[in-house]
């Protein structure tokens, strides 16, 4: 089994790297979507794959109803991104992204439009955050099309083909906030055990540039 323990220094580097990555992602996102967005300092945790629901339940404690967007990212750093948005935020996002102007739009399908708006926000946010981390660590990832999940996030399970049962996973969580629209949500990037090993090596290579 690959070494998945992080030394204190490695943890500090990862934390610092995430701060840089998410900081840059926030700046670039503001430019791309024309809106200021705050991303909190990421919270990093290791947990066992089978404990995902407990991990999510702890992180989501106190949250009201929310919608969930899921997207896989595949590369040396690979896993699943879960974006939790307040259930009622769809409408605000539709106007934020100007989707109501779609010419082929009919009013009966407003719910679908809201869903698509959440998927689009998910795609951009997940792409920005995963893209920045992997860019700093010299990897390029591919993304699956994002999709909306219908079950409760607390019942989520990780796909077996990416997460072997009994293995470890790493969760990088950030809270994001669209200033003008007053929307706050949470983004979880959950990478598998192979990614943890790669992350350790990549972190050390990253540090060598500064030594």
């Amino acid at each position: 089994m690959s070494d998945t323990r992080f030394s204190t220094t490695e943890k500090d580097i990862l934390q610092e790297l995430m701060n840089i990555g998410f900081g840059q992602a926030a700046a670039d996102l503001a430019q791309v979507i024309g809106l200021s967005i705050e991303l909190s300092i990421p919270d990093i945790q290791l947990f066992k794959v089978c404990e995902l629901s407990r991990h999510m339940a702890e992180k989501m404690a106190g949250e009201q109803e929310f919608s969930l967007v899921e997207q896989y990212f595949l590369g040396k750093f690979q896993g699943i991104a879960l974006l939790a948005l307040p259930a009622r935020s769809g409408k605000k996002l539709v106007s934020l992204f100007g989707l109501q102007d779609q010419c082929n739009w009919s009013s009966e399908n407003l719910e679908m439009l809201e869903k698509e708006a959440m998927i689009e926000v998910g795609n951009i946010l997940i792409g920005a955050c995963v893209g920045k981390i992997t860019e700093l660590l010299n990897d390029v990832v591919l993304f699956s099309p994002p999709r909306m999940m219908i079950q409760d996030v607390r019942d989520s399970i990780l796909p077996n083909h990416l997460f072997a049962p009994g293995s470890l996973a790493i969760s990088l969580k950030t809270v994001f906030h669209f200033e003008r629209k007053k929307i706050t949500g949470q983004l979880f990037l959950i990478a598998n055990q192979d990614s943890i090993a790669w992350l350790k090596t990549a972190l050390n290579t990253f540090m060598e540039q500064y030594e």
Binding site: A25, D28, V32, N123, I124, G127, A128, G131, V140, F143
Partner: peptide, 8 residues
């Protein structure tokens, strides 16, 4: 977003 983040 593709040019800025390499996004899909």
């Amino acid at each position: 977003s593709v040019f800025t983040f390499g996004n899909f």
